[in-house]
Amino acid sequence: MSFVEYSDCIQDGDVAIVYLGHESMTPVKVKRGAQTQTRYGVIRHSTDLIGQRYGSKVTCSKGGWVYVLHPTPELWTVNLPHRTQILYTTDIATITMMLELKPGSVVCESEPQLLKLHIIVSVSPVFILPVCVCVSGTGSGSLSHAILRTIAPTGHLHTVEFHQQRSEKVLEEFKEHRVDHLVTVRNQDACKDGFGVTGVADAVFLDIPSPWEAVKHAKAAMKKHGGRVCSFSPCIEQVQKTCEAFSDQGFEEINSIEVLLRVHDVRTVYLPLPDFGPDPSVQIQPDSTITPPQNHASIAVKTTIPPRDVQGHTGYLTFATKPRT
């Protein structure tokens, strides 16, 4: 198992997602000899998980059962421990496409740990556009996992987090998820200290309270020939300042958008039919005196209903293109 490559079977040391039922899941670190308690009973890792195929049904001690799923960035996003507000899949998907992320070779030679990757790239290095991404505001790592999935096996992520505890924790998770070879975590302040790299990034993502302060650092981190940048901010004032900073720094195609997820719950509803009383225009047969109106007749309709309350706003996404400089 890795967050960037599927495996068929569960192995010792994997992180698996236990599916307990609708919108109820939990991540489990698979460890020989360990047990996990669920409301359906105990899962014994050695016998119930290790060696089993991902996606199979595991019967717990109480007779209930669960499915064990292969982790993906999307499953991780709904199951990760929250250390901060996180980005959700709807925004992540938009960011990934709009930043034009894709697998790519690593270019930043100052990153020694990446040299080994060149073997993989060697298929046809000339044709692969290099991709390297800088992120400020690693937070809980929700977006980071999705980026790593998309730029693997040949891209690299530089992520900056000012909160030391959080930067340590997220690095630990990257190791557990076997993606640490694709990422460099720096514990610094992107607004003051930048990203720790210069001229290597194809894309930069900003998720910090004052993104406008980091725009010049973003520019410096990006490749000479240009690239894409995105800033996520909940408040419109932040967007205004960020757009101004992008414009001041010569960015082009500045575009602020908002994407909102709408969930449709499929339901069969039963609608009663009104009783308008006996219809005198319909001749009643004298022998059948009883023609009672179908008082409680109803029709079934397959429909969808929205959840009562939904997320009405996460943040604005501001994209821009760094031109050739």
Binding site: P234, C235, I236, I305, R308, D309, V310, Q311, G312, T314
Partner: peptide, 9 residues
């Protein structure tokens, strides 16, 4: 300033 985070579905 931003849209209220919770919204009627």
């Amino acid at each position: 300033t931003h849209p209220v985070l919770l919204m009627s579905g």
